[in-house]
């Protein structure tokens, strides 16, 4: 039995952690419904909520376009990365060949380099391919960044699938493509959702590449668009609008996580695929 003291401790710490996590977002929301000098008053429940910020961000700049850009880039990155990761993980997880471990380690070591270190190289690549100021350039560069961990996670899951299931499918006359799509993909569904979501979040939040590889406002993704928001004069930072924009772009992520929540949990315990 837990004593009262322990209970208080557990709940106390839990509440502290929840406040620590949620408060910044709450504060962003509160700030987003304030205008002018109200912003600099400490108010937890604003007396006169003003929703004008939410309208203005869409009116004064192509913020809607930016969101669409972000969606295109994130979805593109996720689909491309997952497709490549699944096919690669089949080879890395289920086919024995020389240098497999070396290859896996090489893939992992790609993710060791900080973004800044590869930035200039990536810039050259994007320029050479003629993808500067183009969403395809962002999709390509994000895919390069997300592939190492998607490949690694998918390979781990792929290795866990029992060999007999694959052999049974071979005897049943399935070719490699059918084994992948009809047998492995359904079994890897939780893993796909988990890695896909991680890749989506990474692509959604990415700032440095998005800033470097785009120039026009209408080619920007939301993180850059928010960071480059300006007020009426160059000395004013429009905090209210910035916060409104932040809230708007956080919502899709929360929605995604809530929708796939169950899948993520079962993804973490996906060892239970025993025939």
């Amino acid at each position: 039995m837990r004593t009262l003291k322990q209970k208080i401790l557990i709940y106390g710490i839990s509440i502290a952690i929840i406040i620590g996590c949620v408060f910044p977002f709450y504060w962003a929301f509160v700030s987003s419904i304030k205008t002018g000098s109200d912003l600099f008053k400490v108010e937890f429940f604003p007396a006169n909520p003003a929703w004008s910020n939410y309208l203005e961000i869409f009116k004064e700049q192509p913020f809607g376009r930016n969101i669409v850009n972000s969606v295109i880039v994130a979805v593109g990155t996720v689909s491309l990365a997952l497709f490549l990761a699944v096919t690669a993980s089949y080879a890395l997880g289920r086919v024995n060949f020389r240098g497999r471990t070396t290859l896996l380690i090489t893939i992992l070591s790609v993710s060791m380099f900080p973004q800044v270190a590869v930035l200039s190289g990536m810039f050259e690549l994007i320029r050479t391919l003629g993808l500067y100021n183009n969403l395809l350039g962002l999709i390509l560069s994000y895919m390069i960044i997300t592939l190492p961990f998607t490949v690694w996670i998918m390979t781990t899951f792929m290795k866990q699938l029992p060999k007999e299931i694959e052999e049974a499918a071979i005897i049943d006359g399935a070719n490699t493509w059918q084994i992948c799509t009809k047998i492995f993909l359904p079994l890897l569904w939780p893993a796909l959702v988990t890695t896909g979501l991680l890749a989506f979040i990474a692509a959604w939040n990415e700032f440095l590449f998005a800033l470097t590889f785009t120039i026009e406002e209408k080619a920007r993704t939301v993180p850059v668009a928010i960071a480059l928001m300006t007020g009426a004069s160059e000395y004013e930072l429009p905090w209210g609008k910035i916060m409104a924009a932040s809230v708007v772009v956080t919502l899709p992520l929360i929605m995604l996580v809530l929708v796939f929540q169950r899948r993520i949990v079962s993804g973490l315990t996906a060892g239970a695929v025993k025939g």
Partner: peptide
């Protein structure tokens, strides 16, 4: 190839497709 040999196999671990 296995599929062309006209053989069928039953495995020790059943190896059913779980989904």
């Amino acid at each position: 190839q296995p599929a062309k040999r006209k053989v069928a196999m039953v495995f020790q671990s059943y190896a059913l497709y779980p989904h």
